[in-house]
Nucleic acid binder design. Structure first.
Lengths: 200, 200
DNA sequence: AAAATAATTGAACATCGTTCATAATGCAAG
DNA sequence: CTTGCATTATGAACGATGTTCAATTATTTT
């Protein structure tokens, strides 16, 4: 039964991305397959390849959406605070909470790798950079006495630091249990780093 | 040609681990397959399953060896210093240098996941804990005024932090190029954190 | 020399990503 | 209303994956 115009390309694309998101969220990166996505939206494998270059492309799109979602949430929750310091700390909080609430979806951003000869498309790198810029902007008002380069460096260190705690915790390599412990760890990292960086 | 006693179980095991290490190092986690390992040591797939439970088991063994190697290297290079602070900083240095020199082998430790119903064996978790203990022990002399819990917390934050910078750099999500920049970032993280933690 | 035991094989199975000739459908022209 | 064309979707096919296990071969024992 080959249908036509039941759904537009754009609709199929949207359905596939949503289905992939669900599957990845429930079964993790390794549980995601082209056939599963296809059957979840009532189409066959071949159709997916009319809409995406390949599975890597599809996953990259899903990850892009996840980054968008995360970014929006971070902006939103950051804006619930006035104090510059609390705004910055909130970024870490939101990041960790998302990773805890949807670990598979969050992990897929970092577990997925393109084949070595292909380089990550610019639109994706920009989404990553946009996220990092949030930290840099949040740090700025706290570091008026530092040069832009120093602030960039500090933002990288901070984001990397929070991310590292997060990933080691999610993959159970830090011997901590519960989100709260991870939040405490991240808080400790940011607290002490900021105290050192700004000199109180 | 089915041979017998050409190699003992233990020898085959050793050969397979060495071969897997090489393949993983050269082609990365996704380039590693049972058939490749088998043919690299002149046996067939079936033989591997007489020696390992499955591929996950094999990979776990390889990762265990990598952790051993990394741990030994960190201990060795740490002991080139007397000053407690430099000893601690050296740990981060060595960690990052190893990740840079053999990224595939290092990444595999963190990319590999057991199926969700299986939990990581204790012997592996102990190797991870042993690595973390190195940081904790290195931190101790610098934090005499802190409680053991605080030191443990700080060690987790520090290791997580360095690891995060490292993984984001290796997967090109930090927009930095060259090992030296990563070393600088890590150094900045530790410097400022320690300044905050110890109060100069 | 024959029988028992142990070691190794490799074909078989289900699943994977990917391709593409084929079939089915909707639409426009006659 | 039929015919033909262009579009859309299919699913069988290919090579690769992890894993199993009856069958085969080599060694040891009787």
């Amino acid at each position: 039964m080959s249908r036509r115009s039941d759904h537009s390309r754009e609709e199929i694309r949207e359905m596939a991305l949503a289905a992939a998101e669900t599957i990845a969220s429930e079964q993790g990166y390794t549980g995601l397959s082209a056939r599963k996505v296809a059957s979840a939206i009532g189409y066959t494998v071949g159709t997916l390849y009319l809409v995406f270059d390949n599975l890597d492309d599809l996953i990259l799109q899903v990850n892009g959406r996840t980054l968008d979602h995360l970014h929006a949430q971070m902006v939103k929750e950051q804006n619930q605070h006035q104090d510059a310091r609390e705004r910055l700390l909130q970024l870490g909080h939101t990041y960790i909470r998302f990773a805890d609430e949807d670990p598979h979806r969050w992990e897929m951003i970092f577990e997925h790798h393109l084949p070595e000869d292909h380089e990550t498309p610019k639109w994706f790198l920009e989404k990553v950079a946009r996220m990092f810029l949030l930290v840099e902007t949040g740090l700025e008002p706290l570091a008026k006495q530092h040069s832009p380069q120093e602030i960039t460096q500090a933002a990288r260190a901070l984001w990397g630091g929070v991310h590292g705690i997060c990933i080691l915790a999610v993959t159970r390599k830090l011997d901590v249990v519960g989100v709260d412990s991870v939040q405490d760890l991240s808080q400790s990292l940011m607290d002490n780093y900021l105290r050192g960086f700004t000199g109180h």
